[in-house]
């Protein structure tokens, strides 16, 4: 059984936000215009978070891309009244959009605020509609959405591997953000395989998890800057 995880090397990361754009394109994330954005209703499945501490000129600043952590003990799953969000056997925390009732309990429970809500029905100008990704659903209004580790890519990769009569290789399945990352700061793979890149990196001295003390056990692991 796989346990998919991601490693983000902050020393390589340049804060370019390619992951954000790649995710938008891959996952049919709604276009939130200026007015709605000003109200804070943007949707980002992965978002670059700034941590800027200290006072001028002695500033400790850090930029940190934050996808869904796909926690081992997610706070969101427990609270969903209809079981619309759940963790599958491979540890991916998924949402079934057609079951979600939009109570937004999971969004408030998630300590990483990774979940977004569709305040309105997502709309695209008709000139653009055909350019939506055909592998990912278009969410309706009133449901919660978040990063799925590009699970649809896993389905495709599995299918492809099976057609080619071989095992699924780790490079078969990578999420869009990892694929696009220009400074190769993101790694993706099977944490259960002790020799996979992500496993090896996750055991590095620089490795840390976000809000580790909450015991959510994220499957997204960061490597801190510096030696």
């Amino acid at each position: 059984m796989h346990k998919w995880g991601m490693v983000i090397d902050l020393d390589r990361c340049s804060g370019c936000q390619t992951c954000m754009a790649a995710c938008h394109a891959e996952n049919n994330i709604a276009i939130i215009g200026p007015e709605e954005s000003a109200m804070g209703r943007t949707i980002h499945w992965i978002e670059l978070l700034p941590f800027i501490e200290g006072e001028y000129p002695h500033i400790k600043a850090r930029l940190l891309p934050r996808p869904c952590m796909h926690c081992e003990h997610p706070a969101c799953i427990k609270v969903c009244p209809v079981g619309a969000t759940y963790a599958n056997e491979e540890g991916i925390v998924g949402i079934v959009y057609s079951r979600c009732i939009g109570c937004r309990y999971c969004t408030t429970a998630c300590p990483y605020t990774v979940r977004s809500f569709n305040w309105y029905k997502p709309q695209w100008p008709k000139e653009m509609q055909g350019s939506l990704n055909r592998d990912v659903s278009i969410r309706g209004k009133g449901v919660v959405e978040k990063c799925s580790f590009c699970h649809h890519r896993l389905l495709k990769a599995r299918e492809k591997a099976k057609v080619e009569k071989r095992e699924l290789l780790s490079e078969d399945y990578i999420p869009a953000c990892v694929q696009a990352c220009p400074s190769n700061a993101m790694y993706f793979g099977d944490l259960n395989d002790p020799f996979s890149t992500v496993s090896i990196l996750s055991r590095e001295r620089r490795a840390f998890k976000l809000l580790e003390d909450l015991g959510t056990e994220p499957k997204v692991i960061y490597l801190s800057e510096g030696m």
Partner: peptide
């Protein structure tokens, strides 16, 4: 429908920047 980096192209080797995707 989507844009990905060309893994053969030596400038970017399969990766992109946000503008490229947009």
């Amino acid at each position: 429908v989507n844009i990905a980096g060309n893994p053969l192209h030596p400038v970017n080797r399969g990766t992109l920047c946000p503008k490229g995707i947009a």
